[in-house]
Write a protein that binds this DNA or RNA. Sequence first.
DNA 1: CGTAAGATGAAG
DNA 2: TTCATCTTACGG
Length: 193
Amino acid sequence: MEIFNLDTLTIAKNLLGYSFIHENDEGKTTGIIVETEAYLQNDPACHAYRKKSLRNAPMFGKAGTIYVYQIYGMHFCVNISTNQEDIGEAVLIRALEPTEGLALMEERRLKKSKLNQMKPKDLCSGPGKLVQAMGIHKGMNDWHILDSELKIIPPKIQISDNEIVTTTRIGITQGVDLPYRFYMKGNKFVSRF
DNA sequence: CGTAAGATGAAG
DNA sequence: TTCATCTTACGG
């Protein structure tokens, strides 16, 4: 896929507007990627900053490799590995605008919470939330986006730069000043402004 | 080994 | 703002 020939920051930005799709026996869920973050090799916040390990190995896989990791003992996040093999970089998918399978997303999300209903805005507005809503699990770690239940489809119309906001990343304590977060300007499905 | 911190989310 | 919850990285 052409997008994967680019550098990680450009991929993170260009991924905005792509449809992110998961289809299995439960059904099909789709959302438009509206928020991403890049994690680079020379970036102290990156899981692959120090060395290759069992956990971060998928980040070193060929571009398009899925990296799913657990955080805070209870949540999972999805990344798409970028760059050539043996370079530990990836793009974190932080928020989606749900477009298909909203009922299934809600069903999956409610299973993990005490609520009995949920607004569309609460379905995928954060890395842990979208993983739940899309039915993504740790078994998908090290799968490949071009060869699995998961896939991405480019937007019909390329998103232009003036629709994109670039900021620092969320929830990290290192590399806090690096402008590696991208989101769709004014989009209400973004995790935070 | 022991332990602290972590790319979060929900509730108070 | 607090807490739930547990794997991993890293120091001793």
